[in-house]
Simulated scan of single mutants.
Amino acid sequence: MKKIIPAVMAVLACAGVCAQDMGKLLATGGVSQVEGAGGGGITPWALITSYGSRDSWGANAHYTYVGTQDYKLNAYGVAVGIQDRLELSLARQQFEGSLAPLDKLDIKQDILGLKYKVLGDAVYEQDSWVPQVAVGILYKRNKGIRGLEALGVTNVKQLGAKDDHGYDYYVSATKIYLEYSLLLNATLRATRANQMGILGFGGDKNDSTRLMPEVSAAYLINRKLAIGAEYRRKPHNLSVDEEKAYYDAFLAWFPTRNFSVTAAYANLGDITIFNPKKQKGLYLSLQAGF
């Protein structure tokens, strides 16, 4: 940490003086993960968001929609990548119910993210087996529950959560094999979050921080089109939430460096015991940047 903090300060100082470019290869900026970080749809990668090179910076904005049988999630935010080393992100999630008894449910959450590349280069170090590695932190604050006032529920703590705010810490390793048009990523996340924090942090079943694995794979069909899949393990902390792993299969289109579209089939598992069925549906994300 003593070495990382001065490095972060130096990278931030560059933001005011470095020229902006779009020097990275198409698609290597990733897309915007549903919590705002650069990567896949449901898990962060070690890649730094945007197309700014190591002597530059870049930024993007995103909107993501996830719709299942009983719920929908809207997420939007902005992110900045500096010197292909540091990433800052800010996102808001809005989770809503569409089926009784939770058809009035409305939960918002704000997420502030920081990611720092510590070693490797996924693109330029093709002759090395060492992946690009980054560490990250996500601070999440739940904004309370609306629509359940008739039941006397206005806060996630009333559902059994221990806190309405918390941190996720993660380390990601990403390796790109240009010869095979293949990207592989593994992430290990330390978390207490229930459904990413939408249902708070910790609970009546468990309140300790747990290490959860996440994996991604993507294949570049051509320069502008990629297919892939992701898996994300999550803790089960609440009695009212039979939380299961997330996974998806996605198709990402990069018509230009300024715009991308990602569509996926997502399985989010059980979300609450009030609508006890596996939640499956559409994931759609739009990203614009420079």
Rank of each mutant, 00 (worst) to 15 (best):
V153T: 09
T154K: 07
T154Q: 01
N155W: 14
V156F: 08
K157P: 02
K157C: 14
Q158E: 11
L159V: 08
L159I: 04
A161R: 02
D163H: 12
D163I: 08
G166A: 10
G166L: 13
D168T: 06
D168N: 05
D168L: 01
Y169I: 13
Y170W: 15
Y170R: 11
Y170M: 12
Y170C: 14
Y170S: 14
Y170P: 11
V171F: 08
S172A: 14
A173K: 05
T174H: 05
K175F: 04
Y177S: 11
Y177V: 15
Y177A: 05
L178K: 06
L178N: 07
E179Y: 05
E179T: 11
Y180C: 10
Y180E: 13
S181K: 14
L182R: 05
L182Q: 11
L182C: 12
L182K: 06
L183V: 15
L183Q: 15
L184S: 14
L184T: 12
N185D: 05
N185A: 08
A186L: 06
A186C: 08
T187Q: 04
T187F: 07
T187E: 10
L188W: 10
A190L: 12
R192T: 11
A193C: 10
A193R: 13
N194R: 10
N194G: 01
Q195D: 15
Q195I: 07
M196G: 00
I198R: 00
L199N: 13
G200S: 10
F201E: 08
F201Y: 03
G202Q: 06
G202D: 02
D204R: 03
D204L: 03
K205L: 15
K205Q: 09
K205N: 05
N206W: 11
N206F: 10
S208V: 14
R210M: 01
L211Y: 03
P213K: 01
V215M: 03
S216R: 12
S216M: 01
A218S: 15
Y219Q: 09
Y219M: 07
I221P: 00
N222D: 13
N222T: 07
R223T: 03
R223M: 03
K224N: 00
K224E: 02
L225R: 13
L225P: 01
L225F: 15
A226F: 12
A226I: 10
I227Y: 05
I227G: 02
G228W: 03
G228H: 09
G228T: 03
A229D: 02
A229V: 09
E230M: 05
Y231H: 02
Y231D: 07
R232K: 12
R233A: 13
R233I: 04
K234W: 00
K234C: 02
K234A: 01
P235F: 14
P235I: 09
P235V: 12
P235H: 04
